[in-house]
Each structure stands twice: as structure tokens, then as C-alpha cells.
């Protein structure tokens, strides 16, 4: 059992309300039009996404479920600008996103998006605090350290600021990852199977934390999972099947 500390002991302090993003107003947080992604060519061509449309409102929480290989991660990658579509477009906050070049998308990600990955993806070279500061430093935020400390306190890791990932349990590492995602006060948070590497009890606590932070910050949440129960915590759940999204 990797969880040695009492995960339930952390207190979620919401006295400090993160600023809501001012970028996205009166418009969809995400607008996807006719999005397709193919790989291979000719007879080997595989259609992963096929003319997919999606609109996500600001502050909405959306779960995308589907079986393994259905293209969930591909869709998440396209929404986050980690990959480019074969055709179609993604708009973020009313601005074209998928048509931007790699660096421009990276800059936009840095300013407005947060990520929580299944395998935590903390940099082993950095302390918990440094890991949380990193996206803000990349975006040149001046109060990066203060924000990072505050957010780590919120996820109950005030005592673990100077610990390195290898000194933390799996649950603690994911909490650092969540703090890293929320600290820059992103407009959109992408979560890819956030409990996939955790045991059930820890996973549940992590989900609680994720949703409460999300609610407090009014962040748009896109959650990709194959766990239907987890998906039900979101305001809306869509299933990805044969390259198309459909409501459950």
C-alpha cells in the first residue's frame, strides 16, 4: 500500500477564491467543428475521429467516455492542441486554436489550460512546490510562488512543499499534479484518466478534490475516462464511439 498518509485529513480551504478567467465571455469555452483525425493512408487508413462536433460552455464539466482505443485521448489531445486534426477546427474562447502553429498553441496552453494526467507526470528533478510553479513560470507569472504555495495548501500538502516526487505517495503525487493544474487559474482543465493509477479509495478522494476545486474556480473541465461512475460526477457525459460523440 503506497498510501501511508491520511488522505482524508487535508482540508480544502476555499477562503481564497481563484480569479475566474476573464478571457472567455459570452461565448463557448470550446467549439469543435467537423473535427476529423485519420492515421495511415490508403487501405491502411484508420479513422479515429470522423466529423465530430462539440460545444462546451464556460464552467461546464464534461466527461468523455468510451472503450479503449475509441479515440478519447486523441480527442483530448486535439482539444488541448497537443495534436493537429486532419480536418475541422477547434476554437478556444471564440478564437481559432487548431489552426495556430505549434508554438502559438503552446503559449495558449500555458496561459489558459491545465492538465491532470493518469501517470501524474511530475518532474522528478523538482520539489512539489517547483512542479506546481513550473507552468506559471513558463507563462512568466510574477506571483507564481505565492500561488503555488496557496494551491498546495489547498490540496493539503502544505507540509510537503519541499518534497520530491519520489518522496511522495501516489495519491500525494496526483494532488501535486492537481495543484499544478489549478494554480495558474486556467480557463479549461483537461484530465486524462486522473484516477487510473490509483487505488479506489485514493482515487475517490482525488476526484472529490478535483471537483471541489473545479467548482470553486468555475473552470471548464474536460474529463476523459472509461469509468462511467466517475463520468457521472460531471455535468454532462458524452460517449465516443466510431469517431463520433453521442450523449448517454
Amino acid at each position: 500500500m503506497l498510501l501511508s498518509e491520511s488522505e482524508s485529513e487535508y482540508k480544502l480551504s476555499l477562503t481564497h477564491q481563484p480569479k475566474k478567467s476573464t478571457l472567455i465571455k459570452n461565448t463557448s469555452a470550446i467549439l469543435v467543428t467537423n473535427l476529423s483525425k485519420y492515421v495511415g493512408e490508403g487501405a491502411n487508413k484508420i479513422e479515429i475521429l470522423n466529423g465530430l462536433n462539440l460545444q462546451v460552455a464556460q464552467g461546464e464539466s464534461l466527461a468523455i467516455v468510451g472503450s479503449s482505443g475509441s479515440g478519447k485521448s486523441t480527442l483530448l489531445a486535439l482539444l488541448a492542441g497537443l495534436d493537429v486534426p486532419t480536418s475541422g477546427a477547434v476554437e478556444i474562447g471564440g478564437q481559432p486554436f487548431s489552426a495556430l502553429d505549434e508554438d502559438a498553441r503552446a503559449a495558449m496552453r500555458g496561459g489558459q489550460m491545465g492538465f491532470v494526467f493518469q501517470s501524474f507526470q511530475l518532474l522528478p528533478t523538482m520539489t512539489a512546490l517547483e512542479n506546481v510553479m513550473l507552468p506559471m513560470q513558463l507563462a512568466n507569472k510574477k506571483d507564481a510562488k505565492q500561488l503555488a504555495i496557496e494551491t498546495l495548501e489547498k490540496v493539503g500538502l502544505a507540509e510537503r512543499l519541499q518534497h520530491y516526487p519520489k518522496q511522495l505517495s501516489g495519491g500525494e503525487q496526483q494532488r501535486v499534479a492537481i495543484a499544478r493544474a489549478f494554480a495558474p487559474q486556467p480557463a479549461i482543465l483537461f484530465a486524462d484518466e486522473p484516477t487510473g493509477n490509483l487505488d479506489i479509495a485514493t482515487g475517490e478522494r482525488i476526484i472529490e478534490l478535483l471537483f471541489s476545486l473545479n467548482q470553486a474556480a468555475n473552470t471548464t473541465l474536460i474529463l476523459v475516462t472509461h469509468d462511467v461512475q466517475l463520468a457521472q460526477r460531471c455535468g454532462r457525459t458524452l460517449t465516443l464511439q466510431h469517431g463520433q460523440l453521442s450523449a448517454i
Binding site: 497537443l82 508554438d103 492538465f115 513550473l134 507552468p135
Partner: peptide
């Protein structure tokens, strides 16, 4: 780092 917005 690219994911968090680092440029090339």
C-alpha cells in the same frame, strides 16, 4: 514542458 506551454 511543451504541454505546459513551453515554446520550441
Amino acid at each position: 514542458l511543451r504541454c505546459f506551454g513551453a515554446s520550441k
